[in-house]
Amino acid sequence: MIKNLKKNHFLLASLLVLIASAPISAQINLYTHRHYDSDKILFEKFTKETGIKINVIKGSADQLIQRMISEGKNSPADILLTVDAGRLHRAKEAGVLQSINSKTINKNVPSEMRDPDGFWYGLTVRARVIVYAKDRINSNELSTYEDLATAKWKGKIAIRSSGNIYNQSLMASLIEANGSRRALRWAIGVRKNMARAPRGNDRDQVRAVAAGLADIAVVNTYYLGILANSKEKKDRDVFNKVSVFFPNQNNRGTHINISGAGIAKYSKNKSDAIKFIEFLTSPEAQETFGKVNYEYPLFIENNKSDLLKSWGTFKADKQNLSILGIRNSEAVKLFDRADWK
């Protein structure tokens, strides 16, 4: 058959030859959005323990999903790893994931941090918190996300663009909690309260607070960890000027998001892939994530990182995270309508 092809379709045939070398036993192919040292350490450890080799393609989750769609049945992917739940939901909707049922995983992952149908599972947790300038703001003044839209914060908030997935997820959770009309009004209110038009990443928002340009910022705990442990003194100084506040502690809890994984629909190494997710959700791997990468473990109370501990314990929103995906597109559109850049 290859010979025939070669006659007629030289290019395609040579492609085939190139690709034929892909699946050999005892390896899994990973499509991942994560690029962290913690992952590298854990992958190496997994390979050492099980002998299963891990092949990695990094990319943004959406591009990877598009790629899995276009590859169809031939996709070499076994696992898709993302840094937010919304994308995992989208992958499920796009039909590139499959449902699994593993007792170990179900035990390791709290029910709100996995897909109700078993298509994806959380691995690590990040909280979207408010940081405030120690010298200008008293923590008593802060209460909820909803409060940020009130006029008292006019010109004081630093928050990044609506193109960012963490803002979209926060918005999705607000739509779920309060309905889309109130969510839209919230977005308009926050936009009006911004100290400046959105730009840069979460760290830049913290920098703006430290510089005195804004008084509070909405950021991801992971980025605070990076600032606190930066190699540049300037960054560490920035971190020292701010404090962390967990909003909505008196009602539904602080908005969280997960890094998570799902098994590809056409995975050829399903059992090894399940083993891998079991490994990543195991307590020892969870500890590594926290220590190396400033992420909360799936059971937030088990957190062992000194830095994360220093911010105190908090109550997380218990809403099932699949809602972040279900509401994502609506969130983006509401942001557009609120003119939140």
Binding site: L15, I19, I57, R67, G72, K73, N74
Partner: peptide, 24 residues
């Protein structure tokens, strides 16, 4: 994006060939 679309279409015809993810 064009390449992804293209390879999805080719995949429909030549079932055994994956275009994306090859160096070529």
């Amino acid at each position: 994006m064009g390449i992804l679309l293209l390879s999805a279409q080719i995949n429909k015809i030549y079932v055994d060939i994956i275009l994306t993810g090859s160096l070529l």
